[in-house]
Design a protein around this nucleic acid. Structure first.
Length: 262
DNA sequence: CTATTTGTTTATCC
DNA sequence: AGGATAAACAAATA
């Protein structure tokens, strides 16, 4: 379930690998997680190297190892990173070991992606990402221009486009629409300037607040959010007490509060 | 057995 | 050309 805050959390789970030279690497070369690369390269290149630093951008992660090795990780739909016993996990697809400790990438559905580069500089695919939602460059004006370009799509679908909203996924998009009191099915062009400005504000607040709970220790957001109610059968809007509605919007199941969101 | 899943890429159609 | 939409990917769970 990794979106912005979950990705921030999972990236931190490998922080304890920092400064520990990798002794052994285990993986399945056939795994779909390695599409576009030769997984055997990891077996040759990773042992002996040390994690120096890491960063995230939206749902993307980049781990920088000694002597210019970069490991890119995307968690897809069901990926996770953790420190623990890799042998106990039937879906472990990459296990880095040192002493008796394992750092594991696990992903049952294999929609995630691992990539490796050897280069002094950060790999080229890492550069040229759109501005992070919480950065200075992500201005109201910038967001409005994108909404105009995507004016014929439902606002829910627009929020899921990583080219403008890096890190936003299904639950965050629903949360932002709910807080902004906007019906997720509405086309982007139907939003007034006032509504866009509420959307902009709530978008940034959801990112900030999700990073402060899920991003820190995976604590669920409180019951005052849509989050804990949206998948529950018979779930009720915390604002109105009315039963939440669920419907497919732009190919994704979407949850909203009928009277509350217009 | 069927439908569903918090993501992305590709094909197809407009 | 650029944009919208649906399907595909894999495997668990209800």
């Amino acid at each position: 379930m990794p979106e912005l805050a979950e990705v921030a959390f999972y990236a931190k789970q490998w922080a304890s690998l920092k400064g520990v030279p990798i002794a052994r690497v285990c993986l399945h070369t056939w795994s779909r997680n390695y599409r576009g690369m030769d997984a055997r390269k990891l077996l040759f290149e990773l042992p002996g190297r040390t994690l120096l630093h890491w960063q995230t951008h939206g749902k993307q992660m980049l781990f920088g190892f000694s002597e210019g090795l970069w490991l890119g990780v995307h968690l897809g739909m069901t990926g996770k990173l953790y420190e623990g016993n890799g042998w106990e996990d039937p879906f472990a697809h990459l296990v880095l070991s040192a002493g008796d400790r394992d750092w594991v990438f696990s992903d049952p559905r294999q929609f995630g992606r691992i990539r490796m580069d050897i280069n002094e500089e950060e790999p080229s695919w890492w550069k040229g990402f759109p501005p992070a939602i919480l950065s200075e460059a992500f201005s109201m004006d910038y967001m409005e221009r994108f909404l105009h370009r995507r004016r014929r799509s439902p606002i829910k679908s627009v929020l899921l486009m990583q080219e403008c909203f890096p890190g936003i996924g299904n639950w965050m998009a629903d949360e932002v629409c709910w807080r902004s009191r906007i019906d997720p099915r509405r086309l982007a062009r139907s939003l007034s300037h006032e509504e866009k400005s509420v959307l902009y504000r709530e978008l940034r607040r959801v990112c900030e607040q999700a990073l402060a709970c899920i991003g820190v220790d995976y604590t669920d957001p409180p019951d005052s959010w849509l989050f804990p109610h949206r998948w529950r059968d018979g779930g009720v809007c915390p604002k109105t007490g009315i039963i939440l509605k669920r419907e497919n919007v732009g190919g994704r199941t979407t949850c909203w509060s009928p009277r509350w969101q217009r």
